[in-house]
Amino acid sequence: MAKLEFRNVTVQYPIYSSRGMSLRNQLLRISTGGRIEAEAGKIQMVTALKDVSFCLNDGDSIGLIGHNGAGKTTLLRTMAGIYTPISGEVICQGSLATVFEIGAGMDAELSGYENIIRMGLLMGMTPEEAESKIPDIEEFTELGNFLQLPVRTYSSGMTMRLMFAMATSIQPEILLIDEMFGTGDSEFQHKAHDRMKSLISSSKIFVFASHSHQLLREYCQRIFLLEHGTLREVGHEALNV
């Protein structure tokens, strides 16, 4: 049984300017006895999520909507346990997989095959498990002999195919996806769509952040709207097609 619960979660995000990141300014703060502290020591804190609570159980599929910068990616990363909230509690039970940024964990110098193993390991597989995914990925990506070439020679569409195939090759209980469609040719879009469908039906909890209301309508039963870090549930009527 999978479960994902947020209890009054607040996430604050420090934005370090080049000034804040530099040791010189930290030293200056000490040596000037705080005289310029007001300026040099100021670290912008962004409250990305404010007092967010919800509880997801088996069978929930959630669509996340909101403007750019509303906190969708931060929410997904907090769900995944990458960001730790400053207050509140995140309870996560069940195996979890994330599909966030394209190209995460790939090494451009290594071949497609080597990257399959590499990413598989990063996703928590054993080398044998990762190797067993190869036939499936060969078939899905249709990259053929290109898989023997270094990833740096790939076009962005090809990298995307490999990345998507890899990310969707596991069967997690909780699946978190950040907007990642839009690249790839139409044939690939179609294949990706089918694969997504089967993945969603096999995972127990599914959270999908997207600007495509059409996809959200198709994949998700419940819709969460994020506005300036606060979350509320809205009905499907909030989606315009």
Partner: peptide
């Protein structure tokens, strides 16, 4: 950073 921000490791 691209691993850290995308995968829980």
């Amino acid at each position: 950073s691209n691993v850290i921000r995308n995968l829980k490791l």
